[in-house]
Design a protein around this nucleic acid. Sequence first.
DNA 1: GGGGGCTTGTGAATTCATTCACAAGATAGG
DNA 2: CCTATCTTGTGAATGAATTCACAAGCCCCC
Lengths: 209, 209
Amino acid sequence: MPLKRIADSTVRRLSLYLRFLEEFENAGLTTVSSDELAARGGTTSAQVRKDLSFFGSFGKRGLGYQVAELTQSMRRILGLERDWRVIIVGIGKIGSALAQYEGFQQRGFRVVGLYDSDPAKIGREVYNLPVLPIEAIAEDNRERPVDIAVIAVPASAAQRVVDQVVAAGITGIMSFAPIQLHVPADVTLNTVNMAMELERLSFALSNRE
Amino acid sequence: MPLKRIADSTVRRLSLYLRFLEEFENAGLTTVSSDELAARGGTTSAQVRKDLSFFGSFGKRGLGYQVAELTQSMRRILGLERDWRVIIVGIGKIGSALAQYEGFQQRGFRVVGLYDSDPAKIGREVYNLPVLPIEAIAEDNRERPVDIAVIAVPASAAQRVVDQVVAAGITGIMSFAPIQLHVPADVTLNTVNMAMELERLSFALSNRE
DNA sequence: GGGGGCTTGTGAATTCATTCACAAGATAGG
DNA sequence: CCTATCTTGTGAATGAATTCACAAGCCCCC
């Protein structure tokens, strides 16, 4: 559907809009204007309309957008109308926090497998799922393909684990490891680096007038 | 030091460069070129030089940069030469994972307090720190000021908790709550929204050619 | 000490993103 | 049916970030 490449900043905002639309929907509103969406998200109405315009025409002039309809369009655009099969690799503190995080399940990210390399952890149950050895990923993925692997292992192991995940044929990766990872071009990688986020905050705090 | 406003993308890259420089330093390299830094970070040498040029002149023409010297400059620019006093509010799965995350301590982010509103959690020790009631933040901050509050409470409580933290006089906030928070202009807020990050991945996976 | 080979630092050019501004619809009310 | 009032969708204008391209500086070696 998107004719040209969509900017990352646009996708982030779409995600925000979806959140606001869900709020509006829960509040019982049936109609919303670009101005109201913009106010809620700290941006401008022109920005909202431009963002949407990359994907089509969703509103009625003079009237605004139907909340339910736009919500559904956002979901479709973001690829949230389907379920995603997710595995978590690295069942430490962060991994197990993610395993039980309801925000994921709610949006259709189904955690279907937990993996670790530590023999002490393998076999344990975490939130109704057994922890399996990392070596099992390849075969498990053959039997029942996985869409996304969440990487929550220490920095020192992350690239090796990513290589294994890629070799197993998984092409979507979400990493929480605080390092720069390398993947082939046909694999989509998204990294959340908390250390970097704190450094950004540190910079901002250090440079306030 | 920065003459004009520095782009967020620039700060993110500085953070990356610092990480690479530390790798190079550990590997025993004493000198590095903008080309080598760029290759490591998936950017261009011109980008590296432009990023650095906002803050001064750090290299020698024909030779490159002294690794140790540039590392230190990056630390200074990012505000990492000092320690930051950090509290964590919300000692659930994510909060306690963050409390023990070594990546934070390593870069001078000292966790000095844990707070929660759940009476069942208050009083417990988590990694050598007692969990205190949220109401205590204001007085604790008066006695010994805190630089950064990490917010790891559920979405439904996040804005209220942020208001309390702001009222207590803390002006740096790092939030992991999956909602848009509002703070006064003199408070610096940085949000990591994991749900949004997964949606970004979902979008990317849905729109591969 | 002068020439050749590197690599930085930086204006200029280009590309990308946001904002402006307004015509084109849409509704409602007389 | 016509007018007044909204609000969208979108080219054009502006503004921001990245890339280009090259002069300036530094080192080494002959």
